[in-house]
Computed example of a mutant assay.
Amino acid sequence: MDLLSSFAADPRIVVIGASGGIGTAFADLLRDRGEVIALSRADLDLTDPPSITAAAARIGGPIDLVIVATGLLHDAVGGPEKALRDLDTARLARSFAVNAIGPTLVAAAFLPLLRNDRKTAFAALSARVGSIADNRLGGWYGYRASKAALNQLLRTAAIEHARRAPLSVVAALHPGTVDTRLSAPFQRGVAPGKLFAPAFSARAMLDVLDRLTPADSGGLFAWDGAPIPF
């Protein structure tokens, strides 16, 4: 299948988080499909709102697709909290800043730049563990909660955006477990065949975006297109 066949020819695409494993894969796959504007943290910092609005102003419209390929599960401070006793205010705040607030501020800055006369899309990487309905294991407090917040924030943004651009799609995407730095410390228990290369996951999610319609806007979808309950 041609990439993004349901979008217009020569789309203008913004990939945020283009220095990460999945973001790099998105940008590499899409360069032959249209104009790709690849932004790394040097160009746009999710924890610095002025850098988000400045990047949107520099790029300007119209845009056909925005992909936010970012996420924080662990850093030098520590990994995901396994129990309540592990909770730390600063780490929780950082999880929400990077995983929920930042991508939503990107939506606020970039959704107005999307064309309103044809199919366009805004997509951000979420996670299956952000599904409240699907949570049967517990743990990973900050990551779960911040991704759940992202799902709800994008759902709300989708409702508002549809009033201006009824042909557009806003979606949260679960990439599966991908062989990147984010998942590296947690790959030991991944079932055979379920650890994806970044290029495989990125292409799969592009195929999902290609199939989504405005009726799907605001939803959370897995890499294989299956809807995930909030």
Score class of each variant (00 low, 15 high):
93 A>P: 07
40 S>P: 10
44 L>A: 04
73 L>V: 04
34 G>W: 11
101 I>H: 13
71 G>N: 04
100 A>R: 08
50 P>A: 08
39 L>V: 13
34 G>I: 03
59 I>D: 06
68 V>E: 11
54 A>Y: 15
44 L>E: 00
72 L>Q: 07
59 I>Y: 07
57 A>F: 09
33 R>A: 04
102 G>T: 00
98 V>Q: 02
102 G>N: 05
80 P>T: 04
43 D>W: 06
39 L>F: 10
95 S>G: 03
45 D>K: 12
86 D>P: 04
58 R>M: 06
93 A>Q: 13
87 L>Y: 15
95 S>F: 14
91 R>T: 11
32 D>P: 09
82 K>I: 02
49 P>M: 11
84 L>C: 09
97 A>Y: 08
86 D>I: 09
98 V>M: 03
80 P>G: 04
93 A>M: 12
94 R>C: 04
98 V>H: 05
41 R>T: 00
54 A>Q: 13
77 V>R: 15
99 N>T: 01
91 R>E: 01
47 T>F: 02
77 V>C: 10
81 E>L: 06
96 F>S: 01
77 V>F: 14
61 G>A: 11
95 S>N: 11
64 D>S: 05
92 L>M: 14
79 G>I: 11
61 G>S: 04
42 A>E: 15
57 A>D: 15
42 A>F: 12
45 D>Q: 15
35 E>C: 03
81 E>K: 02
59 I>H: 01
44 L>H: 01
87 L>G: 05
70 T>W: 06
85 R>T: 11
50 P>H: 06
67 I>Q: 08
53 T>G: 14
58 R>C: 00
81 E>N: 07
75 D>S: 12
39 L>I: 11
74 H>M: 05
83 A>T: 15
53 T>P: 03
43 D>F: 07
83 A>F: 15
69 A>P: 09
74 H>R: 11
37 I>A: 09
87 L>R: 10
101 I>Q: 09
